[in-house]
Design a binder for these strands. Structure first.
Lengths: 140, 140
DNA sequence: TGGATATATTCGCCATAACGAATATATTAT
DNA sequence: ATAATATATTCGTTATGGCGAATATATCCA
């Protein structure tokens, strides 16, 4: 997976970029982190895909320098490296006749059922991004 | 190859468009016909690919409604259905750091060695789009 | 330190699509 | 009508990439 800014033929460089993001899961990811960075746990809630699949897509995007990540505790947050990618996607969406509102839904927060910190402002950070945490301790 | 404007998930519709044009030959074709329509013979000169391959790509683009064609004599001319596709490609080019001049070269005419009518204004239309026409008749 | 959890990575399978070769179709010239 | 030519289509092979399963790594908590 060559880096996007390889100095070869223009058509090949453009091709790599488009082929890279020309996939439903990646497009959803890019929209989801486009306006605001997101942790993987948020992407799981949005994409409704298995975590491993999402990480695979993130790896591809990362190696292509389209996204960068940083760790915060157990969570890893992703954001766009070049915001222009979002513009590109928006224009593609317009070309295929997608309504702007439908696009906004892809970036909207909070996402219901998402346990990530950004979708749950004010929640104890210790409790975010936890799937089906056992509450047995509080039961007795 | 589903039509681009299928009413399914936004990310899938966008994906189809991007995957469709995310290929060097198609990108070259779209740039070549972006500003001005072109016949297949011109595309052969520009892409330096075999005719059958070019026609295959054209067929894909046609079925996706990205280009339309009309016949003029023996030649068939192609043009963009939605000019916005060109804008999309230009923006993608900018994202990968391609200089505008390099882009312009992809649409520039005349192309040297191209026998198409547009690359040879004033030439007898009967003689355009003819590869290695036998001149044996004139030899004796 | 050990266990739980969030995320990453590797591997093998499978489908899709690009490509080359061959051939078909439509138009013009003789 | 026949030949020549511009373009289209079909077919079979092959390669690329996405996906599921399994596993690894890193961090936090007790």
């Amino acid at each position: 997976m060559a880096n996007i800014s390889n100095p070869d033929l223009p058509s090949e460089a453009i091709s790599r970029l488009l082929a890279l993001i020309g996939q439903p899961a990646r497009i959803q990811i890019l929209f989801a982190i486009g306006e605001q960075e997101a942790c993987v746990c948020h992407l799981e809630a949005v994409l409704e895909m298995r975590q491993a699949s999402i990480s695979q897509h993130l790896m591809v995007l990362r190696k292509a320098n389209l996204v960068t990540s940083y760790r915060d505790g157990r969570n890893i947050f992703y954001r766009l490296t070049q915001p222009g990618v979002l513009t590109l996607l928006q224009q593609a969406a317009q070309l295929v006749g997608i309504q702007p509102e439908a696009l906004r839904r892809l970036a909207l927060r909070p996402v219901e059922g998402c346990p990530c910190p950004q979708c749950n402002p004010g929640m104890d950070p210790q409790l975010t991004c936890q799937k089906a945490r056992s509450k047995s301790k509080n039961i007795s």
